[in-house]
């Protein structure tokens, strides 16, 4: 909940500024839009953008990794054989879900 706790510090400050010492503040045109009590603090937004970017990297990394390894063909990349997905004839899902080796053949030739 870093999102909300960080706004907690900044938003009231903005509010105090807006209302000032005047007990009956004059409401400027566009008050609620431009300088609203819930106006967004650019610093907070920058901070959030950074966090979101890190998160986005985590979200996309496995997919990007898959794409990148499938594009490499040389040795040293063990992840994916060129035939596409790493379906090893024996030991993958289709095979181990049934010990009969026939399934291996099916997936091996896929």
């Amino acid at each position: 909940m870093s999102v909300t706790s960080s706004t907690a510090k900044t938003a009231p400050a903005a509010m105090v500024k807006a209302t000032g010492g005047d007990p009956r503040p004059a409401i400027a045109p566009g008050f609620f839009k431009a300088k609203g009590a819930t106006r967004e603090n650019p610093l907070v937004n920058a901070f959030l953008t950074a966090i979101l970017a890190v998160g986005a990297v985590i979200m996309a990394a496995p997919l990007l990794w898959m794409v990148s390894t499938s594009l490499k063909t040389k040795e040293g990349v063990y992840a994916l054989p060129r035939s596409g997905f790493p379906i090893r004839s024996c030991g993958t899902r289709t095979c181990a879900s049934s010990t009969t080796p026939t399934c291996c053949r099916a997936s091996g030739t896929r």
Partner: peptide
């Protein structure tokens, strides 16, 4: 793990199983 299948094809493993359904892949490698 299945790692060794890839290592075998990368030429890092000496002994490994070979079955008819592997032949096409191994030949390409």
């Amino acid at each position: 793990t299945l790692d060794t299948y890839q290592r075998w094809m990368a030429g890092e493993i000496g002994f490994f199983p070979v079955a008819p359904w592997d032949i096409a892949t191994y030949n390409a490698v």
